[in-house]
Amino acid sequence: MIRRSNKPVFWSLFGAGGMVSALIGPMLVFVTGIAVPLGFLLPHDALRYERMLALAHNPAGKLALAVVISLFLFHGCHRFYHCLHDFGIHVTAGMKAACHGFAAAGTALAVYLLLVIGF
């Protein structure tokens, strides 16, 4: 009997993260990195503190932030883990746990902060 791999769990998170980052990533870079700071197409105060706080207070906003942070992290960490392997750096169980653990910890922290910030 060949032991079943647990990769489907991490690959699903990686795949979902890839999808979300492909769809939302470029837009986020444009809005937060170009449009708002330069006042190009969007006003300078589009991302000001009160607005962002309102976004984080709104349940739909919380969900969107949690999904973006969590799946981006899982996608990036999984990619990093495979790159190490491709470069011939032998990936130990500890390094695998560190990569995916970092994403899990980031997710837990984001969810915790989104909850304590209030509704």
Partner: peptide, 16 residues
Amino acid sequence: MEVINGENGVWGCTLV
């Protein structure tokens, strides 16, 4: 399916 599901089945590939 057993071969596919194993660590050295499809999961050994990183889509190079």
